[in-house]
Structures are given as structure tokens and as C-alpha cells.
Amino acid sequence: MPVYTLFIFDRKGTCLYYTDWGRSRPPTHNDPEQEQKLLYGLLFSMKMFMKQISPDDSGDFRYLRTSAFKLHFFGTLSGLRFALFTHPSAANQSEALEHLYAEVYVPYVAKNPLVEKGEVITNEAFVEAVDDYITSLPVFAE
């Protein structure tokens, strides 16, 4: 079951990182920036929606499944949003995204003095670590 794409957004909606693993369709309108805006808009609205619909405002959505893909989501209290697109029958990957945050993002980005806040991540060690981790997931091999 293939993994398609990964997006990381900060609180301001900047797409800090994007990567794909052989997606079968080009970005929406052939414009990656447009696609990022669309996705961020969706994630933002989902949060607002849940804030208003849940009995308390602590809820977060884990995944969104359509017949064509599954969007796995993990958000932090500091406003980072991780979104992973996979094949629709893949198991839930929120925990994998949480691991990606704690074990890859924090050491390679948050604790890296060379990375400025809100800057697009180009750090090679990070890119490699993300790729190693995602391709090592059972969902990637299935």
C-alpha cells in the first residue's frame, strides 16, 4: 500500500516541508503552492469545525478517508501540522507522525540553531531521516 505524500505546516500555514514517494498524479493545477494552500485550508477548517462541534475543544481528527486516499493527521500544541497521504486501506499512521515529530523534527529542526523559525526545511540530514523513517514503516512495504 503506497505512501504518497507528506506535508508539514507551521502555525502560520507555511509549508515547512513537502515530499512525495512516487505519486501517480501531479499536484493540483500543477501548482504545488496551490495544493499546499488547499490542504492547509482544509486542516485549519477541520480544527475550527471540531472546536465548535465537540463537547470540549480538545479533539483533533486522526484521519480522513476517501475512496482514493487516506489523509493521516497529527497536530501539536505548538501549532505544527503533519499530514500524510496514503492508499485508502492503510492502517492509521497518527502515531507514526507523532514519532516523526518527536524523533525527527525535534532533534533535526527545533534543536538545530541553523534553522530559523518558520523557514522551509532544506536540511539534508532531516530529509534523509524522514525518508528513512517513512520507508521503514510497515505501511510502506505492504
Binding site: T76, S78, Y101, A102, V106, K111
Partner: peptide, 9 residues
């Protein structure tokens, strides 16, 4: 601003 991420993680 950076330490909060390690704290949360």
C-alpha cells in the same frame, strides 16, 4: 521558542 517543541515531544 525551541524548547517548547522538545517539551511537548
Amino acid at each position: 521558542q525551541r524548547l517548547i517543541e522538545e517539551f511537548l515531544a
